[in-house]
Design a protein around this nucleic acid. Sequence first.
DNA 1: ACAAAAGTGTTCCAGCTACACCCATGT
DNA 2: ACATGGGTGTAGCTGGAACACTTTTGT
Lengths: 227, 227
Amino acid sequence: MSNSEIIKNVSIDCIIYSFNDSKLQVLLVRHAIGKSVGKWALPGGYVKSDEDIDTAAVRTLKLHTGLEDIYLEQLKAFGAVDRFPNERVITISYFSLVRYKYVVLKPGESVYEAKWFTMDEIPPLIFDHKKILEFGNSRLRHIVRHEPIGFRLLPEVFPLLQLQSLYEAILNTKFDKPNFRRKLLKMNFLYDTKVKQKNVSHRAANLFRFDLEAYEKLKEKGFTFDL
Amino acid sequence: MSNSEIIKNVSIDCIIYSFNDSKLQVLLVRHAIGKSVGKWALPGGYVKSDEDIDTAAVRTLKLHTGLEDIYLEQLKAFGAVDRFPNERVITISYFSLVRYKYVVLKPGESVYEAKWFTMDEIPPLIFDHKKILEFGNSRLRHIVRHEPIGFRLLPEVFPLLQLQSLYEAILNTKFDKPNFRRKLLKMNFLYDTKVKQKNVSHRAANLFRFDLEAYEKLKEKGFTFDL
DNA sequence: ACAAAAGTGTTCCAGCTACACCCATGT
DNA sequence: ACATGGGTGTAGCTGGAACACTTTTGT
């Protein structure tokens, strides 16, 4: 335990998304202490006086998922006077995309259960966490169409159809398979590993990898991802 | 002066944009009291314990511009440990678009000068305000292409070419006049008032008005503005 | 008459949509 | 053999880019 103080008025909450079983999932925890014992909430915590807010978010994320070096972006600060009972706490929300299989759920301090939920299973949440989650969802839908971040939810190599289902699930649409394929390949940041799927009861697909470096170069040249 | 307390660890800073003389401008103020006397800064202030953060932003905006009911959106929280000297202050930045001619600059309390600057005239700023401003600029460039908010910087009625110059200035590009015109008109949220410009030494242009209601309806139907 | 900006018309072409079709692999 | 998804080809349409052209107003 660090010996540094916390800032009483500022907290962090993280929306942690993953993709499994063809569905978008979000990580929730049940509080083991404090006013909200037993209730579900977004994983969160306070900011320490000697750490940056981004560092606090990384710490929170690691605490609940064991993961570091993850896509993590600030979402929005929520600061209604009455959002937190009795005290004034402004929360800064973050959102994060993780690869489902890499996460080993381990309830951290002050939490006795951590669990993935699909969007139609979300239980009642404490405070304004439902609002935060909804805000995150709409941001996710937006950003996923304008930046190639969907890859962060998939294994490092993946068949194209899996990428397509991911987008279909998040955006709630259908894409034409041949056209989706061509469109993405033409963007030139998907590297064909030439490795094929194993043990599938149909023709094995080639596995692709997202080439971040190639994407960065394209972006410098004015390319913008748009789906 | 309100009798409510302020939250010591949380401040608000506003990036207030306007458009004049074919250029994007931003409002800066010079501090009259405190550690940064005489230095230029983004207009800001503290959050009171009995007001929402959005309310604090609206209050700050009104203090410096006299304006209410303005486009104002949260940008991002900045919370590096060392961003503020000696104390720990996390700031929540907002950005706002106003109509230049509606603003009467009146230095408020604790500020002895308020002034518009174009982007290539920005003086040194206190703390991390330069970083905040740059973040705001890139957000502005992004949002302006994906939501029709450019109108907030223009008079309520405007000729199309003025809209085009606005976009050209913000995005630093050139558009083809006929094509720009057709593209925007086809979107069906510009209402032709049929009123013409006066006293211009060339054919008078029709003045248009942004029809928010029409735009909202289009959005519901899945339309997305893209420039 | 001329300058300057408003506004219209039209050609050409890239890129997207829609859909038909063939390929590979496990049961 | 057939079901399932992988992957290619292509005809047709749409919308945007480029640019020529006409119109209106003030000096």
